[in-house]
Design a protein around this nucleic acid. Structure first.
Length: 924
RNA sequence: GCGCGCGUAGCUCAGCGGUAGAGCACUACCUUGACAUGGUAGGGGUCACAGGUUCGAUCCCUGUCGCGCGCACCA
């Protein structure tokens, strides 16, 4: 083994070996365990959020595979309708071409070309982080099979009356020229104005004042509403208003919707361009005037002067013209919520169009119930509240999009405007024939479905539905869904509804909601902010110039370039070093707390890269000590030391802890337990304790065999325990270590996941190691206090109230003296007087070394003693305070009271001893 | 308005009824035969604030302050 751990050398060849052997495929044996990957955009690249979630899914997948389950991690990608179409449109624009110039067919071909060119980038990246997905089952939402599932679902929902076509207001994106669902609307507060206009009452000199944030819509007003109980306006209800600029007559109506306390208490009503006004329009049978075209420019419904004006130009013009007429009462600054498209960022318009909708309430009801009754469990549980809140107020889902990239809606129209929903044009024609009694030419609906419509089918469409495949039968419902809270509504809820409706059961039994990865300042990572970290750059490293180039090319706002470059150069003056995939994965696990924001901190990944190196070197030590005498082939009696028994017991405890934490999705606590065992127990203690045994002439062959075997067996099992989190380094080391532990196998990834039963707890060994550690720690403390060189042995006395400590130390005397660099080691009764000594207290034990002969500074020693005493006195005071309260003894658990007594006695003893030392040292 | 989350060491975060923890950063010493991507020792916290429950509260309850998120919104 090389002296330094080098992930570059290991990772890619290891992954290729796993994949080429087909080890990621379900075994076909054992209890089913399956996860579907949240399909990333097929033309996208892997970002930190993917890498994070994929790591967690891979941990689960690898663990369950090792547990002998029939494990599938289903990979795939999504066609990401709007996003992908936008990318290709931008490419075309760069060539000076609009998609309409080349037509739908050619455009869709261009998108497929783009997909072919960039489509495997993300899967290559997934391989780099070690995803053990079954690539042979890779799926894409636009694949034939998945498209068939989409058509099937659409037709069945239509036949069940759960899909309908309706003309109503939708959120219209005037830049992308498509309808959007409610979820794709991002409302944000923006500074605007509140314009107050005077509307003259017909047949008199009175007027009403209406306030609006959107003056241009007044051209489409069809009423003014007041509150029915509003005394100020009661007499005007039923009268007519001569709408300025248009000359149209519109009624004054009364409606509860109006808040008399807001503004003037009069509201202009524009049913064609406001969702609330639309409702009022319906209630009062008001005409609806659509004044916008698809670009949100004014159409022919408005006076000639305004036609063709963009809405924002129209706004200025309307205000100017009303001003000229003296009809502007006042203009106030006003904050309002502006709806924008989540992709285009364009201000959306409520616009009257024909769209397809899913009638959602009947689907939502069972979907709510299955979470209430526990068939689906959210982790952390609190997210179910978010789910309920949305599901209980759910609105019909607009599923049609005026795009070219996506699943075209399986609906055909005849020349009379009738529609036929069918699996094919043939079937549609049959329906038309049946209805009309003659053959007609049909025209297919041009629109495509919302991408999330196909994503909603993902857990069963990828398993072969609508065919009843063996995979569907055995692996559906999937075991767990791992995803971010940002798509609970978009995706999780819809999968639950569709799964229940079409696959006959919940799509997954648990939903583990991860936090969102943010940068070191807590900001969301985004291209436009220039704070993106590419997970592959963390794995491979990247020089500063490449990093700057990566962050500043292709920006939507080129003006941000300088700022991004400056920040990047400041934050990464030397670029980023290579950390390797294992360190990255371990970092993600360690950061996977139950919180909702995760700040990615480079210090963390560096620490875990060092951990990899530590593990690597520990393995080197083990191999060095085993190669000459591999325990697997050893013959003869074997004797285990206390340390051997102790480390096995600790491994057992660690296995238990890791398994328990993984079972509750506490990847952070699992990784912590793994880290602590390897570093603080195996390396810091066990390897050190093994050295005297292996190196000493005094130890017997049986003892050496026991230690060698323990080194190998514990490391081998630990590697298996760690493997799901750090697959590459564990595989690499395991290949060398496993034969030493007598284990044969081609790969660690198909070995059994360790059970605590393999390493049963040994309370006696754990108790016996405590005084051994205490002596060593105490000797080190004294050495540190007195500035005694490491190499120089010191004489040490040990005192303990524990009767069994002496035997424990005697049994491991050589080891204690070796590791602690101790010459003479005396074991004294707890109350024995000490000569002037440097002392240390470890738990309830005192370790001391006579000052005689040690070069030391009595004043410094005195200061130390006084400080220690002050600390102990404070602890004593705290403890005694508890007993000052008589209720403590009466009410507290007996073991707590007993512990308190012990602590008080111990503190008093230490204070007495410190006093005595202080006395003696002051006389030196 | 409704719902949710967070305030613990300089920084990033665990812990959550009975002696305050980790990583990074910091200080001193140490290249000893696994590892300087290291070792050893050490400094550093009235666990946001105020009440309450309890023998005992960082932990449970209530409120306050500060920060954040989601949903719905008054023209």
């Amino acid at each position: 083994m090389q002296k330094t751990y080098d992930p570059k050398d290991i990772e890619q060849r290891t992954y290729q070996r796993w994949e080429s052997h087909g080890w990621f495929k379900p075994s076909g044996q054992g209890a089913p365990y399956s996860i579907v990957i949240p399909p990333p955009n097929v033309t996208g690249t892997l970002h930190m959020g993917h890498a994070f979630q994929h790591t967690l899914m891979d941990v689960l997948t690898r663990q369950h595979r090792m547990q002998g389950e029939n494990t599938l991690w289903q990979p795939g990608t999504d066609h990401a309708g709007i996003a992908t179409q936008m990318v290709v449109e931008r490419q075309l624009n760069a060539e000076g071409v609009h998609r309409r110039d080349i037509g739908r067919e050619a455009f869709v071909k261009r998108v497929w070309d783009w997909k072919a060119q960039s489509g495997d980038t993300i899967s290559r990246q997934e391989r780099r982080i070690g995803n053990s997905v079954d690539w042979t089952r890779d799926r894409f939402t636009m694949d034939e099979g998945l498209s068939e599932a989409v058509t099937d679902v659409f037709v069945r929902l239509y036949e069940d009356g759960l899909i309908y076509r309706g003309k109503r207001l939708v959120n219209w994106d005037p830049v992308l020229h498509t309808a959007l669902s409610d979820l794709e609307v991002m409302s944000q507060e923006e500074q605007g104005s509140l314009w107050h206009f005077r509307y003259p009452i017909e047949g008199g000199s009175e007027h009403l004042v209406v306030a609006t944030t959107r003056p241009e819509t007044m051209l489409g007003d069809t009423a003014v509403a007041v509150h029915p109980e509003d005394e100020r306006y009661k007499h005007l209800v039923g009268k007519q208003i001569r709408l300025p600029l248009t000359g149209r007559l519109i009624p004054v109506i009364a409606d509860d919707y109006v808040d008399p306390a807001f503004g003037s208490g009069c509201v202009k009503i524009t049913p064609g361009h406001d969702f609330n006004d639309y409702q009022i329009g319906v209630r009062h049978s008001l005409p609806l005037i659509n004044i916008f075209d698809a670009n949100a420019a004014l159409n022919d419904e408005v006076p000639e002067k305004y036609r063709g004006l963009d809405r924002f130009a129209a706004r200025k013009q309307v205000v100017a013209d009303l001003e000229a007429l003296g009809l502007v009462e006042k203009i106030e600054p006003h904050k309002l919520q502006v709806p924008r498209g989540d992709r285009s960022n364009a201000v959306l318009e409520p616009w009257l169009t024909d769209q397809w909708y899913v009638r959602i309430a009947p689907l939502a009801e069972p979907a709510i119930k299955c979470v209430q009754d526990g068939r689906i469990r959210f982790v952390p549980e609190n997210w179910s509240k978010t789910y309920y809140q949305w599901m209980e107020n759910i609105q019909d889902w607009c599923i049609s999009r005026q795009l070219w990239w996506g699943h075209q809606i399986p609906a055909w129209y005849d020349d009379q405007g009738n529609h036929y929903v069918a699996h094919s044009e043939e079937q549609a024609k049959q329906q038309a024939r049946a209805k009309l009694g003659r053959d007609v030419t049909l025209k297919r609906d041009e629109d495509v479905l919302d991408t999330w419509f196909s994503s909603a089918l993902w857990p069963f469409s990828t398993l072969g539905w609508p065919q009843q495949t063996p995979e569907l039968k055995s692996l559906y419902p999937t075991s767990v869904l791992v995803t971010g809270f940002d798509i609970i509504f978009f995706w999780v809820a819809r999968m639950i509804m569709m799964g229940l409706k079409f696959a006959g059961d919940v799509p997954f039994r648990e939903v583990y909601i991860t936090g969102l990865i943010r940068d070191e300042n807590g900001d969301k990572m985004s291209k436009s902010k220039g704070n993106i970290i590419d997970p592959l750059d963390l794995i491979d490293g990247i020089d500063l110039e490449s990093l700057v180039a990566k962050r500043t090319t292709g920006l939507m706002q080129p003006k941000d370039k300088d700022k991004i470059e400056k920040n990047t150069r400041k934050q990464f003056p030397t670029g980023m070093p290579s950390y390797g995939a294992d360190a990255l994965r371990f970092t993600f696990c360690a950061l996977a707390t139950m919180g909702r924001d995760i700040r990615f901190d480079l210090g963390r990944i560096e620490g875990y890269r060092n951990f990899c190196n530590k593990l690597w070197n520990a393995a080197r030590y083990v191999m060095m000590n085993l190669e000459s005498a591999p325990p697997a082939t050893a013959t003869g009696p074997v004797e285990y030391s206390v340390a051997d028994r102790w480390i096995r017991s600790r491994l057992g405890a660690t296995i238990e802890e890791v398994r328990a934490r993984l079972a509750e999705y506490r990847f952070d606590l699992a990784s912590q337990a793994l880290y602590e065992f390897a570093w603080y127990e195996y390396c810091d203690w066990y390897l050190e304790l093994s050295k005297p045994t292996l190196q000493s002439e005094q130890s017997s062959d049986a003892q050496k065999r026991g230690t060698r075997e323990t080194l190998a067996v514990v490391l081998e099992a630990y590697l298996r325990l760690l493997h799901p989190l750090m697959p590459f380094i564990t595989e690499e080391i395991w290949q060398s270590v496993a034969p030493m532990a007598g284990i044969k196998g081609e790969t660690i990834m198909l070995q059994s996941y360790p059970t605590a039963a393999e390493f049963s707890r040994d309370a006696a060994a754990e108790a016996a190691i405590t005084p051994i550690k205490a002596v060593i720690l105490g000797a080190r403390q004294i050495r540190g206090q007195l500035d005694i060189p490491q190499a120089r042995e010191i004489a040490v006395a040990f005192q303990s109230p524990e009767a069994t400590d002496e035997a424990s130390i005697q049994a491991s005397l050589d080891v204690v003296r070796g590791v602690g660099k101790i010459g003479e080691l005396k074991i004294l009764p707890s109350d024995a007087p000490l000569p002037p000594s440097a002392t240390a207290n470890i738990d309830r034990r005192t370790i001391s070394s006579p000052l005689a002969g040690l070069i030391t500074d009595p004043q410094a020693e005195l200061a130390r003693l006084r400080k220690r005493k002050a600390g102990v006195e404070q602890n004593l005071k705290k403890e005694e305070a508890k007993f000052a309260n008589p209720n403590f003894v009466a009410n507290a658990k007996p073991e707590v009271v007993a512990l308190g007594h012990e602590r008080i006695a111990e503190f008093r003893r230490q204070i007495a001893q410190l006093d005595e030392q202080e006395n003696m040292v002051s006389r030196l």
